[in-house]
């Protein structure tokens, strides 16, 4: 039953992806992107990643969609018709996909407990979490305690990106003001 729900949700995800690739109205594409994120969150719940599902639903479907709609408001809604033939990108994507699919034959099957991934450090955290930190949610204890430096690095990345966006947009404001001033002077003279 788990596998069945998983497969249905993943198939829906693939269908939405085809829509995202083919549509040229960017508003529709962004809304489809929101649906895609919620579907992805459902898939993640089926895969037992509840914390990730919550983050994906709030960040992927919430913040990303709002950011994209804001930028869309400042620019154009309709995407221009492609000038170049899509054959070369299609070929590159097809070859990449074929190589990756060939690679999946060497990977362990879905849902098994005796794979290398599920017998190393990840499962050690399950045993150590309560005695070491006293937190029952192991994802939280790993994120905030065992791998706390990762989270510090993540915060640094977000901080840097925030500074970058601020600098970009503030310069934009000053350039726009400069241009307006030039236009006013030209209209006076």
């Amino acid at each position: 039953m788990e596998t069945f729900i998983n497969m249905v949700l993943l198939t829906l995800l693939a269908v939405i992806t085809i829509g995202v690739v083919r549509l040229r109205n960017l508003f529709a594409v962004i809304i489809l992107g929101g649906i895609y994120s919620f579907l992805m969150a459902s898939v993640l719940i089926v895969l037992d990643a509840v914390d990730v599902a919550m983050t994906e639903a709030s960040v992927g479907a919430g913040i990303s969609t709002v950011l994209m709609l804001t930028v869309l408001y400042m620019t154009r809604v309709e995407e221009a018709k492609p000038v170049h033939s899509p054959m070369l990108p299609l070929f590159v994507a097809g070859v990449t996909g074929a190589v990756l699919v060939y690679g999946t034959w060497g990977l362990p099957a879905f849902g098994l407990a005796d794979t290398p991934l599920n017998n190393h450090v990840g499962m050690t955290y399950m045993d150590l979490s309560i005695p070491d930190t006293g937190i029952p949610n192991v994802v939280t204890s790993v994120l905030a305690s065992y791998r706390g430096f990762d989270t510090l690095g993540e915060t640094t990345v977000v901080f840097t990106a925030g500074i970058g966006v601020l600098l970009l947009l503030r310069r934009g404001v000053s350039v726009a003001r400069l241009r307006r001033k030039q236009q006013e002077e030209e209209s006076k003279s």
């Binding site: 037992d48 990977l107 849902g111």
Partner: peptide
């Protein structure tokens, strides 16, 4: 790959 059949959230 982290999903195990019959398992629940950690």
């Amino acid at each position: 790959p982290g999903k195990i059949f019959g398992g629940t959230a950690p």
